[in-house]
Write a protein that binds this DNA or RNA. Structure first.
Length: 482
RNA sequence: CGGGGCGUAGCGUAGCCUGGUAUCGCGCCUGCUUUGGGAGCAGGAGGUCACCGGUUCAAAUCCGGUCGCCCCGACCA
């Protein structure tokens, strides 16, 4: 075997490995436009399944989809001071249309708070109009300096939920609820465990009261911010005059939330589950859950095996997303490598020896384990195996995260050594002073990913700040991040 | 925007220092033999050497410039 066909290993160069997997598994490709990528069918298929699952969850929690314009009048973005400060440096701006210079430049949305709350202001009059629960699936543009496939591109696809509520507490509840939805999705569908919590002021969304986040650990022990949910308070309502008559007859500004996840999740999936053979897709998100590979030697066997394989595919297709690889230009071994690279969760081998025994062989992508099963029960066995793979992938990812998490006493020197080396999720005390946070970021590149929610906090709360040694006011999760 | 690297066939590359119209592998096409972990043999198609200008009898190669992309940093989902 020539080395040319092998991937760079994760240990050799994690970054190179990631790019090779994305390109060679045909999830995406570089486009003629700097910083913009093309999402290819295999990558888009994963995104479509993510969309479907999330959309069902949004609907189940009472949200409805709508669509707002790609262009936002520049003046809208300028209204919320913190918001414009955060986003203006990375906007793309349209100054000409139809050959004429525009009277007011149009910003290509980097996020849609401003235009959506301007519309909400038209639609909301009474407390009876609340809550207003809207989601949109859209593309957004942020002019980033440096881009990476799926993780950071100039244009990306996402969903952004936007809601308006009558009270602070209702908005807070909504922001927390949607963070929970994200967490459920990431764990149950992506098999990607996350730590949830609140962002510090330094990492808070521009214009929000509070930002909550789901943070996942990638295989290089860096954190990926996988989804965020914001309690926007009344900040946007004030500048867009989003008011309503209260039950008691007064007037109040509405309380908003916004929350989003993006195609970045596909990158997170790769970096959570991929191995040195390529991609591993958790069954629930796999466009193809199982691939049937028929095996034969002679023409006679070929006819017999292909007929049986086709019958098998038909039987499985009733319950499982299945593909048959009947190409006769490749030997079975070559097909195995290809489907492993593409990350299909289970391979179903069917050859003459199997037919003689009335069986097929199921091979797990995650562990490589082989298991012969009777053709009489193969559908049930396959469904069961897919569920097992899904669960095992989450468990394996969680174990890996815990192995690379540090709790308890740690000196700043030890912390620095850890961050300079293999990296980790470090749970440690924080005095609450932004200066300590900034100093640590400056010295180690590590940031506070979240102030973790209670269930993620250590049994014994840290007593002192990791940096300055003063009394800790909250436990913080520190890591380098994407 | 700073630092580094690279632009040669669909992809990956050699050649560049020391000028003479381009190497190899993968892939692709045809045929035969193969097929339980990346098949073998034979034949074949495919290249304005990123672009512009200069030096020269002659430029992928030397000189000047331009553009693009990737990687590392600062900024960020």
């Amino acid at each position: 075997m020539s080395d040319e066909k092998k991937l760079t290993t994760r240990a050799q160069d994690f970054s190179a490995w990631y790019n090779e997997v994305v390109l060679r598994a045909e999830l995406a490709d570089y486009s003629p436009v700097r910083g913009c990528m093309v999402i290819r069918p295999d990558g888009y298929g994963i995104w479509e399944r993510m969309q479907r699952a999330l959309d069902d969850m949004f609907k189940a929690t009472g949200h409805r989809n709508a669509y707002f314009p790609l262009f936002i009048p520049q003046s809208f973005l300028n209204r919320e001071a913190e918001h414009v400060e955060g986003f203006a440096p990375e906007t793309a701006v349209v100054t000409h249309g139809g050959g004429k210079e525009l009277e007011e430049p149009l910003v290509v949305r980097p996020t849609s708070e401003t235009i959506i709350y301007a519309m909400f202001a038209k639609w909301v009059h009474s407390y009876r109009d609340l809550p207003l629960l809207i989601n949109q699936w859209a593309n957004v543009v942020r002019w980033e300096m440096r881009t990476r496939l799926f993780l950071r591109t100039l244009e990306f696809l996402w969903q952004e939920g936007h809601t308006a509520h009558a009270t602070h507490d209702e908005a807070e509840e909504e922001a927390r609820r949607m963070l929970g939805v994200y967490r459920t999705f990431m764990e149950d569908w992506m098999a990607m465990p996350v730590v949830t919590g609140r962002k510090t002021d330094a990492e808070r969304f521009a214009g929000a009261l509070r930002t909550y986040s789901c943070e996942a650990m990638m295989q290089d022990n860096k954190a990926l911010q996988a989804g965020t949910s914001h309690n926007l308070g009344q900040n946007f309502a004030r500048v867009f005059e989003l008011t309503f008559q209260t039950e008691s007859g007064g007037t109040d500004f509405a309380w908003n939330t916004s929350w989003g996840v993006s195609t970045r999740l596909v990158g997170g999936l790769v970096m959570t589950h991929g191995d040195d053979k390529g991609l591993r897709v958790p069954p629930r998100l796999a466009p193809t859950e199982a691939v049937v590979v028929p095996i034969w030697r002679s023409d006679e066997e070929r006819a017999r095996v292909l007929a049986a394989a086709d019958a098998l595919r038909t039987a499985l297709a009733a319950r499982v997303r299945v593909h048959i690889d009947a190409r006769d230009t490749l030997k079975p071994g070559a097909k195995y490598y290809e489907w492993e690279l593409r990350g299909v969760p289970v391979r179903v081998e069917l050859g003459p020896r199997d037919l003689d025994r009335g069986q097929a062989v199921l091979v797990r992508r995650d562990t490589g384990a082989k298991q012969p099963v009777s053709l009489d029960t193969v559908t049930m066995e396959l469904e069961h195996l897919l569920a097992t793979v899904q669960n095992d992938m989450l468990r394996a990812a969680r174990e890996r995260r815990e192995q690379h998490s540090r709790r308890g006493n740690i000196t700043y020197a030890q912390f620095r050594e850890l961050m300079d080396g293999e990296g980790a999720f470090v749970y440690a005390g924080w005095c609450g002073d932004g200066a300590c946070e900034a100093a640590i970021k400056d010295e180690t590149k590590a940031t506070i990913r979240v102030l973790p929610d209670e269930e993620f906090r250590s049994a014994e709360a840290p007593a002192t700040c990791l940096k300055c040694g003063r009394p800790s006011t909250s436990e913080a999760l520190w890591a380098k991040a994407y």
